[in-house]
Simulated assay, not measured.
Amino acid sequence: MKTQRGVLLLPVALTLAVVAALAYTMTREGGMNVSAVDAQYDIEVARYLAASGMQVAKWRGSVDDCDDDEADYGTLRLPGGSVTVSSAKENKGILTVSLTATTERKSVLALTRAMQMIDLDNPKATTIIGPGDADTTIVKGGSASLANADTLTATEGSAHPLLLFKLTPELDRASIIQADLKLTKKSGNNSQPGRLLSAHRITREWNKNATWTSPRGDATVWTTAGGDYVETPAASVVIDPGSGAYNGVYTLRIDTLAQAWANSPPANYGLLLKPTALSNVPFISFDGSSKPELSLRYYKRCT
Results as ranks from 00 to 15, higher is better:
residue 13 A to R: 09
residue 60 R to V: 07
residue 5 R to T: 06
residue 250 Y to A: 00
residue 152 L to N: 06
residue 47 R to W: 07
residue 87 S to Q: 12
residue 54 M to Y: 09
residue 262 A to I: 10
residue 261 W to D: 08
residue 145 S to F: 01
residue 141 G to Q: 07
residue 232 T to C: 02
residue 23 A to D: 14
residue 142 G to L: 04
residue 3 T to Y: 13
residue 56 V to I: 11
residue 5 R to Q: 15
residue 251 T to G: 13
residue 57 A to Q: 09
residue 211 T to C: 01
residue 199 A to S: 05
residue 35 S to F: 06
residue 277 A to L: 13
residue 252 L to I: 07
residue 261 W to A: 06
residue 113 R to E: 15
residue 215 P to C: 08
residue 237 V to Q: 06
residue 34 V to L: 10
residue 87 S to D: 10
residue 8 L to Q: 11
residue 213 T to K: 12
residue 64 D to L: 07
residue 18 V to E: 04
residue 88 A to C: 14
residue 114 A to S: 14
residue 119 D to E: 13
residue 218 D to V: 13
residue 235 A to G: 15
residue 14 L to C: 07
residue 173 R to V: 04
residue 219 A to M: 15
residue 63 V to F: 06
residue 277 A to P: 00
residue 147 A to P: 05
residue 247 N to D: 09
residue 136 T to I: 03
residue 156 E to L: 05
residue 145 S to E: 08
residue 174 A to Q: 13
residue 200 H to P: 05
residue 166 K to G: 11
residue 266 P to L: 08
residue 163 L to V: 03
residue 53 G to L: 09
residue 267 A to D: 11
residue 72 D to Q: 14
residue 249 V to N: 12
residue 274 K to E: 12
residue 168 T to I: 09
residue 27 T to L: 01
residue 76 L to S: 05
residue 181 L to E: 01
residue 203 T to K: 00
residue 121 D to M: 14
residue 180 D to W: 02
residue 45 V to W: 00
residue 177 I to M: 15
residue 102 T to H: 06
residue 6 G to Q: 14
residue 194 G to F: 11
residue 298 Y to N: 06
residue 232 T to Y: 04
residue 236 S to L: 02
residue 164 L to H: 00
residue 44 E to W: 01
residue 155 T to Y: 08
residue 249 V to I: 11
residue 165 F to L: 02
residue 228 D to V: 02
residue 27 T to M: 01
residue 171 L to V: 07
residue 280 N to W: 03
residue 186 K to S: 09
residue 80 G to L: 00
residue 249 V to S: 12
residue 193 P to D: 10
residue 91 N to Q: 10
residue 139 V to D: 10
residue 237 V to H: 09
residue 59 W to Y: 14
residue 157 G to M: 03
residue 169 P to E: 14
residue 276 T to N: 08
residue 212 W to P: 12
residue 155 T to N: 10
residue 73 Y to C: 08
residue 220 T to M: 12
residue 138 I to F: 05
residue 273 L to G: 01
residue 287 D to F: 06
residue 154 A to T: 03
residue 33 N to T: 14
residue 52 S to I: 06
residue 156 E to Y: 04
residue 108 V to I: 09
residue 34 V to K: 04
residue 236 S to H: 02
residue 282 P to H: 05
residue 274 K to I: 10
residue 291 K to M: 13
residue 107 S to T: 07
residue 273 L to H: 05
residue 179 A to L: 06
residue 181 L to M: 12
residue 243 S to C: 06
residue 295 S to G: 11
residue 121 D to I: 14
residue 231 E to T: 11
residue 214 S to K: 14
residue 123 P to A: 04
residue 160 H to A: 02
residue 268 N to V: 03
residue 220 T to F: 07
residue 258 A to D: 01
residue 67 D to F: 11
residue 125 A to M: 15
residue 243 S to T: 07
residue 252 L to A: 10
residue 201 R to F: 01
residue 59 W to Q: 14
residue 182 K to R: 10
